[in-house]
Design a protein around this nucleic acid. Structure first.
Length: 115
DNA sequence: AGAATGACGTATG
DNA sequence: GCATACGCCATTC
């Protein structure tokens, strides 16, 4: 049984170059829409892993985490062709990764939401 | 085993 | 429209 972290890594690892994904999106892919926080938590444990394109994971607003790696993220994303707005945000709506091959599991638990 | 913690997101005041 | 509150649940101490 893979840990939740491993699941997150598995998805992040598949993010194509030149695209970005939000924490919420990853959480939804895992079938746990409200686990966006823990997606980030999972990455903090592996932020040093070169194999993991953690820099392609952003906030829902396209904003980068305001940490020491934000600059690095900006550099790498820009190098990959990801466009930024004048505010320094990623144009997430334009570069958002659409995981067609990775359909959301039917095991979704988010139904009880009051949407 | 129980409590604290943790890169978010959405709802509500 | 901005500020605050709460929920989410795995991982670690």
């Amino acid at each position: 049984m893979k840990g939740f972290n491993q699941q997150v890594y598995d998805i992040v690892e598949k993010i194509p170059v030149g695209t970005v994904v939000t924490y919420g999106d990853i959480a939804k892919m895992l079938g746990r829409p409200r686990m966006a926080r823990f997606v980030g938590f999972a990455m903090s444990a592996s932020c040093e892993t070169d194999n993991l394109p953690w820099h392609r994971v952003t906030f829902s607003d396209g904003r980068l985490w305001d940490g020491q790696w934000a600059k690095v993220q900006h550099d790498m994303l820009k190098a990959e062709g990801v466009g930024f707005t004048k505010d320094g945000n990623i144009d997430v709506e334009k570069y958002r990764w659409h995981p067609e091959s990775m359909a959301a599991p039917q095991d979704l638990r988010d139904m009880p939401l009051k949407f």
